[in-house]
Nucleic acid binder design. Structure first.
Lengths: 229, 229
DNA sequence: GTCTATACGGTGATAGAC
DNA sequence: GTCTATCACCGTATAGAC
């Protein structure tokens, strides 16, 4: 799914070209995006247990009946919301990974930086993950979605770690550690001290990478310097 | 709050001594424990959004009215459940910390081992944390409880890290890294690959500590060996 | 496609017997 | 203290007008 801003751009473009049928489809897609977006907002603000169709409708500025018209039922709406949330997250790190230099350290730094970008690493987005994970026991489908995504990330990370020449850690341990560190630092944004910032998280993250791959210290420092400017 | 097993022991003891009034109090406490326990079970199995008084009552083997009699309302019951959950977690690491040898590395290893003990580190217990954290935005009280606990743990960890003589990491970074690693590895039990075990988690954890404090390699290995026997 | 009105079931909480 | 019966409300989903 495309970000709303992009959909708006497409809508405008199509309108200008006067293509009513495609226009209608795109507008419909945009409406659905709006609703999905409102759903994620509500999950963040009220938690899954207090996220009601009434809430979502009000937030999206549409009627309750309209939600059902587009998504048939609440369950489906929540599923679509999770998929959209997941897609955004995945696209973020994959884009960073693909546009990085083709050296292990550059790729590693790229996906780590991506993980702490404001689009994915903020209180709202993280709250939503936790809301779904908190119900993943009763609704295994939630876990399936997250698990698939997670597996791909882990795989990519492991492949990167396997390309380093020497480290005190095995590639498996290094990959597991780095991934756990990212997840753990994310958690700090929710339950940690109020003043915890993305910059601090990223700095700590890179310090750890330097300890794991001391040979790459120079490159990492250059990335950090560039980032802080 | 005391673990149910202990409460049972006290109940039996008091009964023998024939103290009806205290006995009644203790039995009442035990009843409440049962209900709190059932509540945590339901949060794990159904998620917070599907945890109803009907569910809890059925799980606890009591009537719905009885729940309200003891806890006045659902909100209070959930609060007590979180407090009990939190208490168990805190007691676990504090006990380990206090009974450890008074050297930094022994204390560090002790609280790390405690974090991966089956009592606190299993799918059910972790699910419950996530359920509450997922709602912590809408119910700040949840965050307060977890935050206080978290702060104490962080503080203890930092104090320990400050006692090490030399490391490539600052005490602050080391403490943050270790705490994040624990949290991140916990997360693996929920969304990670199915085969992930506590032993693996602990092994990875200790490998990382060795990288952070290379001087302590020997002690850590001895702990690991002892653990795996 | 979007709305309002409404049916229906489930949920938290109360009342009162035992 | 514990239960059953019951209420009032709210949440999802449907129907039908526009």
């Amino acid at each position: 799914m495309k970000p709303i801003s992009e959909v708006i751009a497409i809508t405008a473009q199509v309108t200008e070209k006067n293509l009513p049928s495609r226009n209608r489809n795109v507008q419909s897609e945009y409406r659905k995006q709006q609703m999905v977006h409102a759903t994620l907002d509500c999950i963040d603000r009220y938690g899954l247990s207090q996220t009601t169709l009434a809430n979502i409708a009000k937030t999206a500025g549409v009627s309750q009946g309209n939600l059902i018209f587009h998504f048939q039922n609440k369950e489906n709406l929540l599923n679509q919301a999770l998929l959209a949330h997941n897609k955004e997250y995945t696209t973020n790190w994959q884009t960073a990974f693909e546009s990085a230099q083709k050296t292990p350290i550059a790729q590693l730094c790229a996906i780590i930086q991506a993980a702490f970008k404001p689009i994915v690493c903020n209180r709202k987005k993280i709250s939503v993950w936790y809301a779904f994970w908190g119900e993943s026991r009763s609704i295994p489908w939630y876990l399936e979605v997250c698990g698939r995504q997670n597996k791909e990330f882990s795989g990519t990370l492991l492949t990167i770690c396997q390309q380093f020449d020497d480290s005190a850690l095995s590639p498996e341990s290094a990959a597991t550690s780095i991934e756990a560190m990212i997840d753990g630092l994310w958690q700090s944004f929710i339950i940690g001290p109020r003043g915890f910032t993305r910059q601090q998280a990223l700095a700590t993250m890179f310090e750890l990478v330097k300890v794991i791959y001391p040979n790459e210290t120079r490159y990492i420092d250059s990335v950090l310097t560039e980032y802080l400017i």
